[in-house]
Amino acid sequence: MGGGGCACGRVHESKVQSVRICEASCEEDLLSLLEGLHLEGDVLCVADEYTWEVQGKEVYQELRGHLGRSVRSFVFPGRKRLHPDEHAVGALTISAHSGVGMIVAVGSGTINDICRFVSFVLGIPYLVVATAPSMDGYASSVSPLLVNGKKQTFPAHVPFAVFASRRVLQEAPAELIRAGMGDMIGKRTALTDWRLSHRRKGEYYCPEVASLMEQAVDAALDSLRSGDGATGVDVTALMEGLVLSGLAMEYVGSSRPASGSEHHLVHYWEYRLLDAGVEPPFFHGSAVGVATLCIAHCYAFMSARLPDLVSDLGLVPPSPSEVHALLVSSGLKIRPAQLGIDGNLLHDSIRQASELRPHRYTILQMAREMDLIDDMADYVVSHLGG
Rank of each mutant, 00 (worst) to 15 (best):
D308F: 11
D308A: 12
L309F: 13
L309Q: 07
V310R: 03
V310A: 01
V310M: 11
S311G: 09
S311I: 09
D312P: 07
L313S: 00
L315F: 05
L315W: 01
V316I: 07
V316Q: 10
V316E: 11
P317F: 01
P318L: 09
P318S: 07
P318E: 07
S319Y: 00
S319E: 09
P320K: 04
S321C: 10
S321R: 14
S321F: 12
E322F: 11
H324I: 08
L326N: 02
L326S: 02
L326M: 14
L326Q: 06
V328L: 12
V328E: 10
S329G: 05
S329M: 10
S329C: 07
S329P: 09
S329E: 12
S330T: 00
G331D: 06
G331T: 03
L332K: 00
L332S: 00
L332Y: 03
L332N: 04
K333E: 15
I334M: 11
R335T: 13
A337I: 15
A337M: 13
A337N: 13
Q338E: 15
L339H: 01
G340H: 01
G340F: 07
I341E: 01
I341H: 00
I341N: 01
I341P: 07
D342G: 06
D342P: 07
D342M: 06
G343M: 09
G343E: 14
N344I: 13
L345C: 10
L345N: 09
L346A: 05
H347I: 06
D348L: 13
D348C: 11
D348M: 13
S349M: 06
S349Y: 01
I350F: 05
R351Q: 14
R351C: 13
Q352N: 15
Q352D: 15
Q352P: 03
Q352T: 11
S354E: 11
E355N: 14
E355D: 15
R357N: 05
R357Y: 10
R357W: 08
P358K: 06
P358N: 07
H359I: 12
R360L: 09
R360N: 06
T362G: 03
T362P: 03
T362Y: 01
I363R: 01
